[in-house]
Design a protein around this nucleic acid. Structure first.
Length: 339
DNA sequence: GCGACAG
DNA sequence: ATCTTGTCGC
C-alpha cells in the first residue's frame, strides 16, 4: 500500500527543527580527533562505514535504511544492515536529517549492541555536513548523535551562503585535472564550507565534501578520494546499492514468485548480515537530543553518560532538555513537543 | 508568478 | 529520492 506523502511541516515545526539544529551544532567538532586522521597513509584506519536511505517508488513513506561497514584500504564489505522503515517527516531542503537520521542512528545503535567490534571509525553520509543553510547538515547531525567521525558527501552543490552553481563554478570544475583535485567552496562570510572534489580521473561531476563531525576538511577530502573506486565513495555506494536491492527483493516478489531473490553483482557478500526484523514498528521519534551543559572538548570520557541521556530516557524528557537549552541559546519562547 | 530545491 | 534503454565512449 503506497502511502501518501507527508505535506510540508508547519512553520512552528520548522522553527523547532531550526532550534534543534542550533543546539546540536554547538557540539560539532570540526577538527581531527583520531590519530589515523593525521597519518598520511591513514594507518590505523581499518573500518569505514556508509549509510543511505532508499525509497519505494510510488510511496513517500516506505523506505530502506542501510548501514554498511567496509574494510580499509581494501574496501570490502564486512557488515551490512538493511531494514524497512516508515518515514514520518517529509523531505524539506535544509532539514533532511529530520527525515532520515533517526533510522540511521538506530542502525548504528544496533551495531553497537550486536557487533561492537565492527563499529566503523568513520561514516560517509549521503548529504552535506557544515555546508548547509545553518551550518548543520545531516552529516553533522548523525555525527553528533552517534559521536562518530562523519564526512558529508553531496552529489549536487547546495547553493547556500553565496555559493552558486554558476558559470564560474562550472569553469572551476572544468579545470580540475585528475582524481583527487579539488577547490574550496567559500561561503559569503569567507569561511571554507567544503571542497568540490574530482573523485577520480574520468569523473565530470565533482563531489561536494564537507565536515560532518570529528574530522578536518583536509582529512575528509583525502579519505573520500581514497575510498572512491567510482565517482561515489564505496561505503555510500554499497549502502545505496544494497538498500535498493533490499527493496527490490522485498517488494518486488509480489507478482514474481519462484524466482529466488538474487543479489546484484555490484554487491559483494558481507561476512555478517543481521537481517533486521524485516517489518518493525520503526516509528521511532524524530527527536533525538540531549542537553549539553559543557563544551565539546573532553568528549571521549563523557560520552557514555551523554549516550545514556540519548537512549535511556523518554522523548518528553529529551524535549524538556532541548527547550531549556534552546531558550538559553536564543531568547525564544517555550516549545511544544512535536506531534 | 518565478526560481530554488542535499536526499 | 524515483520514473527509465539504449547508447556513446574508453
Amino acid at each position: 500500500m503506497a502511502r501518501k506523502a507527508a505535506g510540508r511541516p508547519q512553520e512552528e515545526t520548522l522553527s523547532l527543527w531550526k532550534r534543534e539544529q542550533a543546539l546540536l551544532k554547538t557540539l560539532v567538532v570540526d577538527r581531527d580527533t583520531e590519530a589515523w586522521q593525521r597519518d598520511l597513509a591513514f594507518s590505523g584506519l581499518q573500518r569505514v562505514g556508509g549509510v543511505d536511505v532508499s525509497f519505494v517508488k510510488g510511496d513517500s513513506v516506505s523506505a530502506c535504511a542501510s548501514l554498511v561497514v567496509l574494510s580499509y584500504p581494501e574496501l570490502e564489505v564486512m557488515y551490512e544492515d538493511c531494514r524497512m522503515v516508515s518515514l514520518t517527516a517529509p523531505y524539506v531542503s535544509g532539514f533532511l536529517a529530520f527525515r532520515e537520521v533517526p533510522f540511521l542512528v538506530d542502525a548504528v545503535q544496533q551495531l553497537r549492541e550486536k557487533e561492537p567490534r565492527l563499529m566503523p571509525q568513520v561514516l560517509f553520509v549521503d548529504g552535506n555536513g557544515v555546508l548547509h543553510h545553518r551550518g548543520f547538515g545531516v552529516a553533522c547531525h548523525l555525527g553528533v548523535l552517534t559521536d562518530l567521525p562523519c564526512i558529508g558527501v553531496a552529489k549536487k552543490l547546495l547553493q547556500v551562503d553565496g555559493l552558486e552553481n554558476n558559470a564560474l563554478h562550472k569553469e572551476k570544475i572544468r579545470l580540475l585535472k585528475g582524481g583527487g583535485d579539488s577547490f574550496p567552496l567559500m561561503g559569503g562570510s569567507g569561511t571554507v564550507l567544503g571542497m568540490a572534489l574530482k573523485s577520480h580521473d574520468h569523473s565530470t561531476k565533482p563531489l561536494y565534501v564537507s565536515v560532518g563531525h570529528k574530522m578536518s576538511l583536509e582529512a575528509a577530502v583525502r579519505l573520500t578520494h581514497g575510498c572512491c573506486k567510482f565517482r561515489i565513495p564505496e561505503p555510500v555506494r554499497q549502502a545505496d546499492i544494497r538498500s535498493r536491492d533490499y527493496i527490490r527483493r522485498t517488494l518486488g516478489v509480489q507478482g514474481a514468485p519462484a524466482l529466488r531473490p538474487e543479489r546484484s553483482k555490484k554487491a559483494q557478500r558481507p561476512k555478517a548480515c543481521p537481517q533486521g526484523a524485516s517489518e518493525e514498528p520503526a516509528g521511532s521519534p524524530s527527536l533525538r537530543a540531549f542537553s549539553a551543559k559543557d563544551g565539546n572538548e573532553p568528549h571521549q570520557k563523557k560520552w557514555p553518560k551523554l549516550q545514556q541521556r540519548i537512549w535511556g530516557r523518554g522523548k518528553e524528557a529529551l524535549w524538556e532538555d532541548l527547550v531549556t537549552k534552546c531558550n538559553s541559546i536564543h531568547q525564544g519562547g517555550a516549545g511544544h513537543p512535536p506531534q
